[in-house]
């Protein structure tokens, strides 16, 4: 048994493997890509804090990734992560949570963290539904899909979360699917290295609670669909909105330099403390 050990098992809490994700769940692939990315960056898990919320994908860092983790209340992982980063700017703070958490319930935290451009890496696993609680409609559920709370049809259009975060002012934004694992892994490395708010939307499969409602019962069918629907962002220039409506735009949406929040905040604090000391000599 020892000789077959996976080379990255040191990064995973091996004692609780196999994990509890359903057969073919995309969360497992995201965990795999994430662990590979952390190894690729050469980051020690001792220098990381992973923050997650409630939902299947929040189980990726907590309990399966072997670092310090904060498993927080529903929708608040970015709020908690902001606190961690401000108090410990030396640590790499990573948020892995689902679409219901980050874009639904915690949507306001997301846009304001992007606006502040705080140095967090947020990996949002978008399975397009509230999977853990039984397949209720989420803000990322596509138009016209039947879910357990929209048994006839979903009449709301889906959120384009990556575009929203880019507009809000994040430093690095990308979107990939669980089929595009190699670019996803590279993108995660870039996001971890990037100073500023970096966000990756990972379109993922949920065969058990979403797939069975839309006729994709296995992970294989899902990945084939991701492969067919994905279109690289550099190939979208000549395409109309109607053509792109049913497609998944993948690739790097933006990579730019903007002032980072914690650095600005700590510089300001130092300046004020120095000024006060000059005013009132001890």
């Amino acid at each position: 048994m020892e000789e077959y050990r996976h080379r990255l098992m040191d990064y995973v809490r091996e004692e609780i493997m196999p994990h509890r994700f359903c057969t073919g769940c995309g969360c497992g692939t995201v965990l795999n890509a994430f662990v590979n990315a952390v190894e690729g960056v050469g980051l020690s898990p001792a220098k990381m804090v992973c923050v997650s919320g409630i939902g299947c994908s929040s189980w990726i860092p907590s309990p399966y990734f072997r670092s310090d983790t904060l498993h927080t209340t529903h929708g608040r992982p970015i709020a908690f992560a902001t606190g961690v980063k401000i108090m410990r700017p030396d640590l790499t703070v990573i948020v892995i949570a689902g679409d219901g958490d980050v874009a639904g319930i915690g949507g306001n935290h997301l846009i304001h963290a992007a606006r502040r451009n705080i140095d967090l890496s947020v990996f949002m696993v978008n399975n397009m539904i509230y999977g853990m609680t039984g397949g209720q409609v989420a803000p990322t559920t596509p138009y016209g899909v039947k879910t357990s709370t929209t048994p006839h049809n979903n009449v709301e259009p889906a959120f384009k979360v990556a575009e929203l975060v880019m507009t809000a002012g994040a430093s690095y934004v990308a979107r990939w699917t669980t089929y595009h694992v190699f670019p996803l892994m590279e993108s995660m490395q870039n996001a971890i290295r990037k100073r500023g708010f970096s966000f990756i939307e990972i379109v993922s499969q949920c065969p058990d609670n979403y797939g069975r409602r839309i006729g994709l019962r296995t992970a294989v069918e899902f990945l084939h669909q991701f492969k067919e629907k994905a279109v690289r962002i550099d190939k979208t220039a000549g395409m109309s909105e109607a053509e792109l409506a049913d497609r998944i735009i993948i690739g790097k949406l933006c990579d730019r330099e903007r002032p980072e929040f914690t650095a600005e905040l700590h510089a300001l604090t130092r300046r004020i403390v120095a000024a006060l000391k000059q005013e009132q000599p001890a």
């Binding site: 996976h6 098992m9 073919g24 692939t29 795999n32 890509a33 590979n36 694992v181």
Partner: peptide, 13 residues
């Protein structure tokens, strides 16, 4: 290594 990276279970080495 596509299988190793796609595998959700860390089962392929």
């Amino acid at each position: 290594r596509l299988c190793e990276l796609l595998c959700p279970e860390f089962a392929i080495i």
